[in-house]
Design a protein around this nucleic acid. Structure first.
Lengths: 219, 219
DNA sequence: GTCTATACTTGGATAGAC
DNA sequence: GTCTATCCAAGTATAGAC
């Protein structure tokens, strides 16, 4: 079953005809996931969109799920770079809320979160898939945690809201808002939430301006 | 296509052998959605779980998607009753947070949110399905909005946080937390978020105790 | 090494049996 | 009126052609 007669599971070449086909299929897989979801992302549907043969999915990736995971990886690394740059400059809660909003809008268009959600739900069907998707989600939780930590700094708010918890909530909120937005095609409600978060964040920044005198328990 | 040669699309009988079979199939559909998701919820998989023939899905419901919608309805109305009772007594933000936590735990076991999420994502694949699922989601948003309104009352917080927006965020958060919890099978992170929300809510209740003097803009 | 033609499996839907 | 046997389309996977 795990008998990889091809090099597809190991090396992943970066140039040549094989690499071209792989890239083509990965791109088509991303688009297919966005358009028709995991349930509709068959080897045939993806290959047709890529303008190539469905057998190639199995030759290059071994299985449909492995191709979908590769698609998730591709889009994930691409978005991660973009976001890290934006979040690095968010040194207040209000700035974080502002950045989060920008990221959400960009993502809704790019469809990254959609791809992720489809993979999370699709993973229910296939036994081992859940862990593999969870693995790919972890960097995002870490990214969010760093951002929260940077935004809260050493302010009083950091005591009330541990970054790890805030990050979990933030990621969950992202997923949920995207889910709702994709359902009714209406992003206004989600944006209103972000705007509200920003104005509340401004208040929080003012309150947080009162730095605590670095109590001993800080270790 | 919409040619319903049977009574299945209209009346929905409540007793008799037909009703029994319907109930059996609906129950099996719920379990199947929870276990293997939309992608795995085929007529055959559902019928096998129900111990009956896959053809009955089409006889009684017309299509697999219609059966799944019926399953969503069934579980939705059942949960709605339970929750309405709990939320009615939440007249402070802290109480709301407490209730939300209880509901989340109960739901994670019952699997209702899971069913809903599967239908939302599955709807991507089928053209008209999205609207039908959205229709079934609306009562929940309304329920959340009422709960928020009741919890905030006429306090200062109600000015800062419009109930409709808060409800949207609340529903999104629920969906997102469930999504994450179902991925790694770990509910601890989600519960920590709810606990944190509760302790923050207590603070908010104290602040909100300061009632505003019913300004004119209140209409 | 890369890709296509073909084999086999599962799924949706219905014609016809009871 | 209720259910089952059967049909055809779509899916995964691979044997073999280039």
């Amino acid at each position: 079953m795990a008998k990889s007669g091809t090099r597809s599971r190991v090396a992943a070449p970066t140039s040549g005809r094989s690499a071209d086909t792989r890239r083509l299929l990965i791109g088509a897989a991303v688009e297919t996931l966005k358009d028709v979801g995991y349930a509709g992302a068959s080897a045939r549907a993806i290959a047709e969109r890529a303008g190539s043969n469905q057998g190639l999915v199995f030759y290059h990736f071994g299985s449909v799920n492995d191709l979908l995971l590769a698609a998730l990886d591709e889009v994930s690394t691409r978005r991660m770079e973009a976001y890290r740059g934006v979040l690095e400059h968010a040194t207040s809660v209000a700035a974080l809320a502002e950045s989060a909003r920008a990221i959400f809008v960009e993502d809704l268009d790019a469809g990254y979160v959609r791809v992720l959600i489809e993979m999370i739900t699709g993973a229910q069907a296939v036994p081992g898939l859940g862990d593999l998707v969870a693995e790919r989600l972890r960097p995002w939780r870490d990214l969010a945690e760093d951002a929260v930590r940077r935004a809260l700094g050493r302010s009083a708010a950091a005591r009330l809201l541990p970054p790890a918890e805030a990050a979990h909530a933030l990621v969950a909120g992202f997923l949920g808002l995207e889910l709702l937005a994709s359902l009714d095609g209406d992003r206004a409600a989600a944006l209103a939430v972000f705007d509200r978060a920003r104005s509340l964040a401004r208040m929080l920044d003012l309150l947080g301006g009162i730095r605590l005198p670095a109590a001993k328990e800080e270790r």
